[in-house]
Nucleic acid binder design. Sequence first.
DNA 1: ATGTCC
Length: 474
Amino acid sequence: MDLTLVAESPYRFRLEQQDPMRVPGVVFATRELLPQAAGDKSLEQVANVATLPGVVRASFAMPDVHWGYGFPIGGVAATDIDAGGVVSPGGVGFDISCGVRLLAADLDTGRLAPRMRQLMDTLGHTVPRGTGRGGLWHLTGPGQMAELLAGGAVYAVGRGHGVPRDLDRCEDGGRLPGADPSGVGPRAVERGLGQVGSLGAGNHFLEVQAVDRVYDEETAAAFGLRAGQVCVMIHTGSRGLGHQVCTDHVRAMDQALRTYRISLPDRQLACAPVDSPPGRAYLGAMAAAANYGRANRQLLGQAARRAFASAVGADLELVYDVSHNTAKLETHEVDGAPVRLCVHRKGATRALPPGDPELPEDLAAAGQPVLVPGSMGTASYVLVGTVGNDAFRSACHGAGRVWSRHQALRQVRGEELRGELEARGIAVRPSSWRGLAEEAPRAYKDVDAVAAATEGAGLARLVVRLRPLGVVKG
DNA sequence: ATGTCC
């Protein structure tokens, strides 16, 4: 396919529809942010996604788009369920329900400073992280796992890990409906039993941050945020359990392609109709894995609360918890009529506008917080959903990688990077030197530019900028 | 992302 991009506005580029695409591609970015890394095939992937059966409107890419498995990371695509639309595990990603939780402390940076070292040491010693390894909550067995997979953060709070108010500030109230724990295989269950309440590795982290800049005072206040305030941002997902669920169902769907006579430009887009046995099986297992991810972040939020209580004597209120790797059944207006859709967001955050009935009462007038973590040592952002977002109410999810992990390892030494960050006043508690080097800020796009482009494209509005004070690295 | 290969 000829991948010519046509600028429709300074923040919106169009990939013209051509055979076998069923819809055009739309990339939200500035010219500077468009994928240009050697070997980045993400624009080709945007076009590939546009060939999926039942896809409607367009195959979208957010400003942080980069190459991924099948779908690009930063990709959004919706399929019409009643017109044979498909669901694809590659459109969710291996880390099912990977997402971000932001908590705000009743504390400003000045009062934290003398206790910062103690706080970071406490977090460093109590937050489980790294590949494999254990978590904060060891489940007793498959029976308890089934309850957690069905209940997500609701189950965790019911067992004393948090307060009911937390659930008001979680996407879907902390529990994605439609979970089918029986679709999560024994191997996935085995991997997950000891990992509830763990960060994992890669780009996952727990960061202590400060509200650095406020763009919209009224919305910030509705979110419980003010200038100079200390916050905690947690970025993690469904660990080995979600990975295993994706692996198992990609295999099943690859075999289902023949049954449903689906031809694809890339086998990594393996999929099945939403309304089919393999489609329903994946969505049930995916929702269960999503609930694992939500319980995981709930447990880590509690670990942060304990550390703040003991080291600083401060409380943490949940601002919001939202996933950026999901496939959700939603109704949107397409060509003037409501249509039942399966919306894939892979490295893309749902962004509900003010007035949406899914919002909790105290956020109804403001809109949904959109949590955008930056790369290590750089800023993070809170944005808010806006009216008129035609990417099925979706926004960016982070900075977006430009160097491969391998490439980063050739350019950066972890020990040196830690020194650079500490010299800039950012405390670092690493898990491995290698992992630290792979996550060097140089390996990512400029998150300030990504956030600005997201606002420029009308996907969401800036609310606050957060700067890092200390990072507990996965 | 991931017991970075069953």
